[in-house]
């Protein structure tokens, strides 16, 4: 049976993890020593934080890793209370068949400061029996007391040649043919995100017998929200209400996230500039606004409101005739 390739080809051991050599070397030392401090993995999406944590858990804990490894997603768990309850009932028991227990908490940066302080107390309380692995996108959003209790590992975006190697391997096993250049364009669109790269590969292969440069482009353009260009054009033409309605439709009904939207807007504006539709000065002004609002989306409370504000910046600009 065919699994999603991201799972089927998820590295099961540390030495299978690609593109994070320095980190893996140090982690393997923990395996050898049979003990490890609290760890924090930071880095963008799809670079192997979860994979590494799972692989490390298996190797450190050995045969009975499943019983001694607790995986929690901080952003989905309903509030800190659930997290604490889960951690408590897990840590209270001594590790059986393994040197200690591991709690893996994903996306800790989505926890509030209060919740993080509570977590810090849990970490202190169970140091003897358990180790924590925390993962996050931005370590700046983690309170200092937690950071200072962890060995911090920064995961870099996966390099292009590493991604290509991995894709080639998968393609070989799956017997998928591809033309020269197809994998390069997957790498281009994946932007260092291995999960995305593998998903694009599987989506492209599901469309036809051979993965080509064109089929990759088709997948990527199909997979992005369709109306972003239209929305940008409406705003440039001064139809703010129209553009705003479209934005709300894309975000609320189609469920596109704020971060995805800002990336899409950026890409559309770049493309328009490449196509000669935007004057250089207009282009760079817009990029400045997009960058600023990308930041505010992360700081603010409602991404949609911030994006509406970003759309107004287009009102004062025009396209080249």
């Amino acid at each position: 049976m065919n699994e999603p390739w991201v799972e089927k080809y998820r590295p099961q051991t540390l030495d299978e993890v690609v593109g994070q050599d320095h980190i893996i070397q140090r982690l393997e030392r923990y395996v050898k020593e049979g003990s490890m401090p609290n760890l924090m993995f930071t880095g963008p999406a799809g670079v192997g934080k979860t994979t590494t944590a799972l692989a490390l858990g298996k190797e450190v804990l050995g045969e009975y890793w499943r019983q001694n490894f607790l995986e929690l997603n901080a952003s989905d768990a309903r509030g800190i209370d659930t997290v604490r309850k889960d951690i408590k009932s897990f840590c209270r028991l001594k590790a059986v068949g393994a040197p200690f227990r591991i709690i893996f908490l994903d996306e800790v940066d989505n926890m509030t400061k209060d919740a993080q302080h509570a977590l810090r107390r849990e970490m202190e309380m169970y140091t003897k029996t358990s180790s924590f692995i925390l993962s996050c996108n931005y370590s700046s959003k983690i309170i200092d007391p937690i950071q200072s209790r962890c060995a911090i590992f920064r995961f870099a975006p996966v390099k292009g040649h590493h991604i290509i190697k991995r894709l080639e391997k998968i393609a070989k096993v799956e017997n998928v043919k591809y033309t020269a250049g197809a994998l390069e364009s997957i790498v281009y669109f994946a932007e260092g995100d291995m999960r995305r790269a593998v998903n694009i590969l599987q989506a492209s292969s599901s469309m036809g017998e051979e993965i080509t440069d064109e089929s990759v482009h088709e997948v990527v353009s199909k997979a992005k929200p369709q109306d972003v260009r239209k929305m940008v054009n409406m705003a440039l033409d001064g139809d703010f209400l129209g553009a705003r309605d479209l934005l709300r439709e894309i975000m609320v009904v189609q469920g596109t996230s704020g971060e995805d939207m800002v990336t899409q807007i950026y890409q559309e504006v770049s493309r328009m500039s490449i196509e000669g539709l935007l004057k250089g000065s207009v282009y760079i002004d817009l990029i400045q606004s997009i960058g600023e609002y990308d930041y505010r989306i992360r700081e603010g409370s409602n991404p949609r409101i911030q994006l509406e504000a970003l759309l107004t910046k287009f009102l004062l600009k025009t396209q080249e005739e």
């Binding site: 999603p4 999406a45 994903d106 998903n199 694009i200 599901s206 997948v219 199909k222 996230s257």
Partner: peptide, 25 residues
């Protein structure tokens, strides 16, 4: 199934949608 948050899972939806057009997959 994929060891992610719901948010990350949702980000993969558009690609999954393409995969789901293939009957077998």
């Amino acid at each position: 199934k994929t060891h992610t948050s719901k948010k990350v899972a949702k980000e993969q939806f558009p690609l999954l949608e393409i995969m789901f057009q293939n009957d077998e997959l």
